[in-house]
Simulated scan of single mutants.
Amino acid sequence: MAAKGKIQRARWCEARLAPLVLLSGPEDLLADRARQLLREAVRQQANRQQQEVEFSDLDAREYASGTLLSVASPSLFAQPRFIWVDHLEQMNDAFLSDALDYVAQADPDVTVVLRHRKGVRGKKLLTAVRDVPAALEVECAELKRDDDKQTFVREELQLAGRRIDPDAARALVDAFSADTTELAAACRQLVADVSENITRADIDRYFGGRVETTGFAIADAALAGQTAKALVLVRHAGQQGMNAVPIVAAIATKVRLMAAVCEVHASPQQLASKVGGAPWQVRRAQQDAARWNPIELGRAVRAVADTDAQIKGQAVDGGYALERLVRRLATRRIGS
Rank of each mutant, 00 (worst) to 15 (best):
I83F: 08
G238M: 10
D193G: 00
M242L: 15
V232Y: 08
V120F: 05
A134V: 10
H265F: 05
V71G: 01
R61K: 10
A60T: 11
E142S: 11
D93A: 15
L68S: 06
A15Y: 05
A78H: 06
A128M: 08
V103G: 03
A303T: 02
A141P: 02
A259D: 06
L29V: 15
D202E: 15
E89C: 06
A169K: 06
P19T: 06
I247G: 04
D98R: 04
A186L: 07
I251R: 03
A219Y: 03
R327K: 07
L76Q: 08
R16T: 09
T111A: 08
A300W: 02
A160M: 11
R154V: 14
T253V: 00
A46T: 09
F55Q: 03
R33H: 11
T111R: 01
E137Q: 14
R130F: 05
Q8K: 15
Q79F: 03
Q310F: 06
A10T: 09
R210C: 01
L297Y: 04
R256M: 00
Y63H: 02
H87S: 12
L96C: 13
L325Q: 01
R284G: 00
E89G: 04
R302N: 01
A78K: 06
D146R: 12
I198Y: 04
A94P: 07
L20R: 03
K149R: 15
T213F: 12
A2Y: 03
R291W: 02
P108S: 12
L76Y: 10
V153T: 11
K144W: 07
G119S: 11
P166Y: 03
A135C: 09
Y320I: 12
R188N: 13
G208P: 03
G5C: 10
L297G: 03
Q314S: 06
R117N: 05
P279I: 14
G66L: 08
S70V: 08
R210M: 11
G241M: 07
D317N: 15
G225S: 04
T127A: 08
A290T: 07
F176C: 02
A184H: 11
T111M: 05
A192H: 10
D202A: 13
P133S: 12
V261T: 07
L20I: 13
A303V: 01
D28A: 11
R188F: 05
R130E: 12
W280L: 11
A72Y: 07
A249R: 01
A175H: 11
R205W: 13
Q36E: 15
D308V: 00
S70Q: 15
Q105L: 09
Q281Y: 07
G319F: 04
S267E: 04
A222K: 02
E212L: 14
D204R: 14
A272K: 06
R163M: 10
R170H: 12
A186H: 03
F82Q: 02
V129F: 04
P268H: 08
N243R: 15
E52G: 04
K118M: 08
A289Y: 02
A171R: 06
A250N: 06
Q36T: 14
K312F: 05
Q44T: 12
W280F: 15
A178T: 14
L38A: 09
R283S: 13
G276P: 02
L159T: 12
E52W: 03
E89L: 02
R9D: 03
L159A: 13
A249C: 04
R210T: 00
A219E: 01
R333F: 00
A315M: 08
I334W: 02
V129Q: 02
T227E: 14
